[in-house]
């Protein structure tokens, strides 16, 4: 066996043991810096979503009311705790609180949020069961204004209006809906825009109607999208 005593430390070895706390301190400092950078890199604004489903119950579109159930169910399934949802209908005069079928801000606890979703679903079911007579007029602008007010109140990050309508506005003469919609930061998704009898005669009328609403929404600061096939809707909702 060799005669060198390994236990007899030299100055280098002594330095090595002194280096350990420095290393630990350096590692801790590095970890803290990393955490600070990670935390500083994240924003602290709102993170929730809010959606309003507007159901047109006027004229021939009233036959499509069952589609509202699918759209609402889909949204309820996709929204997270902390999000908000409102379901309202569009009739002769839509800019009033009576038009809300249900509205709720989901709790942050998943179990409570699930109960709230069930409650919204029940209220919609009850409304659909009660519904029998379509309205004579359709106040689309009023409905959109009602939805906008609700969405602004939620202060959500993503705001969406799902508009189930044929986009054929028929206002009562006494209503004044010429003002701007002010849809900044709001996405309006027209769902299931059906073609009426008039559109069958003159297809340009359909395009003109859709184009008019698209232009109006975009001019008033909103984003426009249209989904006629409801099966495509999950993809659009998931993109949020």
């Amino acid at each position: 066996m060799n005669s060198i005593n390994p236990i007899q430390h030299d100055p280098h070895a002594a330095n090595a043991s002194d280096r350990r706390p420095r290393r630990a301190r350096a590692a801790a400092a590095g970890l803290l810096t990393l955490m600070v950078v990670l935390l500083a890199g994240c924003d602290s604004g709102p993170h929730n979503r809010a959606a309003v489903v507007l159901i047109d119950i006027s004229g021939e579109y009233a036959a499509e009311i069952e589609k509202a159930r699918r759209v609402t169910s889909l949204l309820l399934g996709r929204l997270d705790p902390g999000d908000s949802i409102a379901v309202a209908f569009i009739d002769n005069t839509s800019y009033s609180d009576r038009n809300f079928i249900a509205r709720v801000d989901f709790d942050h606890r998943p179990s409570v949020a699930n109960d709230q979703k069930r409650s919204v679903h029940r209220e919609l079911e009850a409304f659909l069961d009660r519904f029998s007579v379509p309205s004579a007029h359709s106040d689309l602008t009023g409905g959109i204004l009602l939805a906008r007010d609700y969405l602004e109140r939620t202060r959500a990050k993503d705001k969406q209006i799902f508009l189930l309508s044929d986009l054929d506005e028929d206002l009562k003469p006494e209503l004044d809906r010429d003002g701007p919609l002010k849809l900044n930061g709001i996405e309006v998704v027209a769902v299931n825009v059906i073609r009426g009898e008039r559109d069958n005669i003159d297809p340009a009328h359909y395009r003109e109607r859709v184009g008019h609403w698209q232009q109006r929404v975009q001019e008033d600061g909103g984003r426009w999208d249209m989904v006629n096939e409801i099966d495509r809707l999950p993809r659009l909702v998931a993109q949020r």
Binding site: L39, H47, R109, P110
Partner: peptide
């Protein structure tokens, strides 16, 4: 997920719940 049931999930700190 279960922690959001116990701790308030609505509060955010530096962008994280």
């Amino acid at each position: 997920l279960p922690m959001s049931e116990m701790v308030s999930g609505g509060a955010y700190f530096a962008g994280m719940p």
